[in-house]
Simulated assay, not measured.
Amino acid sequence: MSASTVMSGASPTEPRSVLVSGASFAGLATAFWLNRLGYRVTVVEVAPGLRRGGTPVDIEGETIAILKRMGLMEAVQARTLPPRRFAFKDARNATLGDMAHHPDDEAGPRYEIHRDDLLDVLCGAIKGDVELRFNRSIVAIEERPEAVSATFSDGSRHHFALLFGCDGNRSNTRKLVFGDGEQFTHFMGGYFYLKVVPDTGLLPPNSSEVFAVPGRMAMLNGYDDRTDIGFGFRTTGEIEYDYRNKDQQRRLISDRFSGLGWKVPDMLAHMGGDNDFYFDRISQVRMSTWSRGRITLVGDAGYCVSPFAGLGGSMAIIGAGRLADALARHPDNHAAAFHAYEEGLRPFVEQVQERAAIDSVQMLFPGDEAEMAERDRKLAMGDIGV
């Protein structure tokens, strides 16, 4: 039975047919492993194509091991970016502390790859084996003992043995299955803006620079042909804004950063008036369980570390790999597989989330004078934990 027959809903559920919601790192990696395990995989994505843009992804530790098992590490290495230097700057552009990232430093191999390149590698690995359906989302989910029924945005309804929510930190799957996503959101006390523009000449290629004053941070990432412009600010509580209103979000950044020194005026000038940028609160997704019946979550949908931490791609690949291992150990028992997946991965997720919530945020943009003094003390000692 083909995937398209399963999608037609004209026949009983095929025991090996599964649905993946979301075609980013978590969805593509999960689809890869499910296909390898012998499932008939359909991926649905609300966007008209792969969601491109964004900052590069760090590949290290367990992520490297999993990509090797997938047979994709050589393709990743072929697209690896040159080593970069990360520097903290003061208002006069003097360096307060810096470090270099090398492919094989003391912490083990570490690579950086453009987000779009990693998407292409993962998508290429499932091409022809997995059914990808864009411009489609799930609007209703009904779980029965023997199957999951999914109603799609085109009005059609289809049945699957299992459903995997891989649709990001604002996961629609999570909302449909577990309820309002706000109950699972842990606000980390700030907001972050990111825009990728052509090379600005504001810093050398293959380098990153950060400037901060209490409660505000400006970051530049330089590459051969582009520059990432980033701003972050701290707040005592959440602010009201419309996540669909790009004009409002631009004004938030302009109002909070106008008048600041360093390279900030030039950064603001490069923001432009288009809507091709990312703005969101800095938050994590924390859930007591990632699974319910025949449905489980992978990556940011279940355990977003924080968009600010830059670990989403790695955590998605690790999550998909760990889930595949659990399904391989329990091939005929999805409940046991989902339990093993969660029990094995949760300690690691909580450790990474805790580190991101404290060390990364306080180091990159201290909230007050006390945190600023502690950051400067660490920089003077060479303790740069980012």
Rank of each mutant, 00 (worst) to 15 (best):
I253Q: 06
E106W: 14
V18P: 12
G22V: 06
A65Y: 02
P103E: 00
H101F: 15
M315G: 07
I282H: 01
E62N: 04
A23H: 03
K89I: 13
I141Q: 07
S17K: 06
Y193T: 09
L96Q: 12
R294L: 11
L311E: 12
G385H: 10
F164V: 08
R84N: 08
L220M: 15
L162S: 10
Y193P: 12
A356V: 00
A65T: 10
R79D: 07
T13H: 01
T42D: 01
L327K: 05
S254I: 04
D167Y: 00
N221G: 13
F160S: 04
K89W: 12
S11A: 15
P48N: 08
D376E: 05
V130T: 14
M1D: 07
L345E: 02
I141L: 10
Y223N: 11
V18I: 10
A47F: 11
F233I: 05
S2W: 04
G61K: 05
V305M: 03
V196P: 04
G61T: 01
N93M: 09
G128I: 03
T235L: 07
V121F: 01
I59Q: 00
S306W: 03
D255C: 09
G108M: 01
T289L: 06
G302D: 12
R294I: 13
S24M: 00
P198I: 05
E143K: 10
D224A: 15
H270W: 08
G272M: 12
L220P: 13
R36A: 14
A94L: 12
R216C: 14
L364I: 15
G230A: 14
M271F: 13
G299P: 08
T63W: 06
V298C: 11
N93Y: 06
V305Q: 12
I66A: 00
W290T: 04
E142L: 11
I66G: 00
T227D: 08
W262G: 03
G27R: 01
E354G: 15
C123H: 14
I239Q: 13
G273I: 02
R322V: 15
F178R: 00
E238T: 12
Y111P: 01
T200E: 08
L297V: 09
G53F: 00
Y241D: 13
S4G: 06
E369L: 07
D98C: 03
L119R: 02
A340R: 02
F32D: 02
F365N: 11
I113V: 05
F211L: 13
D105T: 08
I66N: 00
P82K: 10
G293A: 09
E374W: 09
L37V: 13
D332L: 08
A373V: 03
N35M: 10
W33R: 01
T151M: 05
Y341I: 03
L34W: 04
A380S: 14
N221F: 09
N135E: 09
P347D: 07
E60S: 06
D116P: 02
V44G: 02
D376W: 04
G155S: 10
P48Q: 06
F365L: 06
F279R: 01
N245C: 10
R85E: 03
F178M: 07
E142P: 04
D90M: 02
I282T: 11
K246H: 05
F233K: 04
L132M: 15
S360D: 15
R136I: 10
P109F: 04
R110K: 07
A26S: 13
G71S: 03
S314I: 05
H158A: 12
P307C: 06
S153V: 12
M1V: 08
S360I: 14
L34D: 03
G344D: 15
